[in-house]
Design a protein around this nucleic acid. Structure first.
Lengths: 340, 340
DNA sequence: CCTTCTACCGAAAACGTTTGCTGTTAATAT
DNA sequence: ATATTAACAGCAAACGTTTTCGGTAGAAGG
């Protein structure tokens, strides 16, 4: 049951390991005859080069590491899919890990990946993370790193993000243009950059249309959850009975909003329009179907891999590596929680 | 920027590589003095053993391969999460791959994983796969393999599955006990074993309660999709205007059913009760909230890893390895599409 | 003073490849 | 005939570890 090696082939054929290796790799300094017999035998014995030996020799494993905050999450699992598909296309495999939004876990896992000596690392920073020495370390060791989705200005490396500001702007713009005058925003945690960007987009849209911005109309949902939506729309309705539009940080929050509005017999979109964010599976299944923003998750994964491979190849060829920043466009999905 | 090796430490300290290695690994035949200085220096230089060299030496990579039909799928991404978590707990990392239900891709990816020399493989067989020589090959090479979710009798290895029959039985049983007399089943593709098992559970429940089984009341949804649900409930309502219960292969199909019932002003659950299957994210967000069956996806992943680790360890210790078959229990989730 | 131990250290082989260099043979050119 | 070259083969080192086996020194014992 032993794995067949170059040595085995060499022994059987009564030649040296060197020659076998060269024959297999198509070196020109081996005769056509021996080359053929080596090829044949290798084929018959089903010889497969030992990946471990190759890794050691080449100092690379054709493997990349991937850390996301949460694997079983619609957005991230689509990113993962994109990453894996694009990596595979280029002869790389992916080791996936989940930080659970924990800074400690993130650090530990980056260590693990480096210890494993992956050829490069793809990372969406955990919400909890606020300092970035661990990322500096990676760059210092010259391990290719690209950040996606959750990124930071602080670190100088390639990044791929969603244009959250623009997306949020589009969402709120649609709300206003369909007639909304008083729009509340159920925003995400203060720490999260995405949440901040979307909030900014909300502001910009209000400003553009000359609507006043009232900080009292922004509510903080730190859980991105359905119950967050339920809770805050209740408060919002009490504080602003005349609100006619809701822009939420996430489809799940919007789902909660929709539930409460339905329970309170508030007509959607006639009395109140609702815009979600993410285009998760749930959005098309809600009733009424939720208008939302589609994020190109799979494409983001693919893009991140391509950026990473650029760095990996650049490094191998000892070329000066340059970093890129890609912003992916989102798509406005009009369904039935907004007026035409 | 070179990685620091045992050799580096040895040179600096003016001792041999052997001694350094032994000092680090706590061998007793190295003096306390040298041990300490080695430890110190290793710490200072931030020495990390070269994983590639270790792999080659130990003939193992502490890495397992995982193939699922689809990564960006609620059920599977939860399995992946379980797999990764449990693997990490035991010092293993996971290379994830997606077969897209294609037999060709499945074969290719198994090859890739073997070439990478993963320590073991976790596989959910693709729908398309009907012959199993490629799996036999793996067993022949004595590479630990465990099948999960989509399995086959043909192959003799450890397996972990959901008890679909029992789950479906429970679902239909609930329907009947809450008063349903005429229950249609929107089933999955004929090829899929899960679909067959759930159909069987449906039959058993009918039989147990003395209800007649009418093949005309079973409809084939080959896409597991919302539109499948919409389409087939329409037909079902036409063919059986007096139906009072629906059991679907999947929550998404149920979502379609719910939509059409709502559009046709059919009261749920008063006139018609609906049972889904999977407990996907959408189920709690539908209105009314969908009663369904919860599948312990994460636990399935963990279980599969544990089974695999057993085989890996057994193999290393050259013990006779025995295979296990685990059936995970599901949980009935009563929400608002069934009467109390 | 010689033997036997103990405590410590290191040489070398091994894991499976790749590749620069050396060597051998035979063919060609002078 | 000798010198040069071409065509082929293999040695050995290297990648970074681990581990078996000997070896050396000093201490203890006779």
């Amino acid at each position: 049951m032993k794995e067949v090696t170059l040595k085995d082939i060499a022994q059987i054929l009564g030649i040296s390991v060197t020659t076998v290796s060269k024959a297999l790799k198509g070196y020109k300094d081996v005769s056509e005859d021996t080359r053929r017999s080596v090829m044949m035998l290798a084929e018959n014995l089903n010889y497969k080069p030992n990946a471990f030996a190759l890794n050691l020799k080449n100092k690379e494993s054709k493997t990349i590491g991937l850390i996301v905050p949460e694997i079983a999450h619609h957005f991230f699992s689509n990113i993962i899919q994109g990453v894996i598909a694009e990596a595979e296309k280029n002869g790389y495999m992916v080791i996936a890990l989940q930080s659970s939004e924990s800074n400690y876990v993130e650090k530990k896992q980056l260590e693990m990946l480096m210890d494993k000596r992956v050829d490069g690392i793809l990372l969406a920073i955990a919400d909890e993370t606020e300092t970035y020495e661990h990322l500096e370390d990676i760059l210092k060791k010259e391990i290719p790193l690209v950040l996606f989705d959750k990124v930071t200005e602080t670190i100088n490396c390639s990044k791929v993000t969603i244009d959250d500001k623009k997306a949020a702007f589009q969402a709120v713009d649609l709300l206003i243009r369909s007639g909304c005058k008083k729009i509340v925003h159920l925003r995400g945690p203060l720490g999260a950059p995405n949440a901040a960007d979307r909030h900014e987009g909300y502001l910009t849209a209000l400003k553009k249309h000359g609507l006043v911005y009232d900080p009292k109309m922004v509510y903080l949902c730190d859980g991105y959850s359905v119950s967050d939506g339920r809770k805050h729309i209740d408060i919002a309705l009490k504080e602003h009975p005349d609100l006619d539009g809701v822009f939420t940080i996430t489809d799940h929050v919007a789902a909660g909003v929709l539930q409460r509005l339905h329970e309170k017999k508030v007509k959607v979109p006639e009395s109140v329009s609702v815009m979600g964010f993410s285009n998760s599976v749930i959005s098309s299944v809600l009733s009424p179907a939720l208008s939302t923003i589609d994020q190109p998750a799979t494409q983001m994964g693919r893009e991140a891999v391509n950026l990473l491979l650029k760095e990996i190849n650049g490094r191998r060829e000892k070329k000066k590596i340059e970093h890129f920043q890609v912003q992916l466009p989102t798509k406005l999905i009009k369904r039935n929680t907004t007026k035409p």
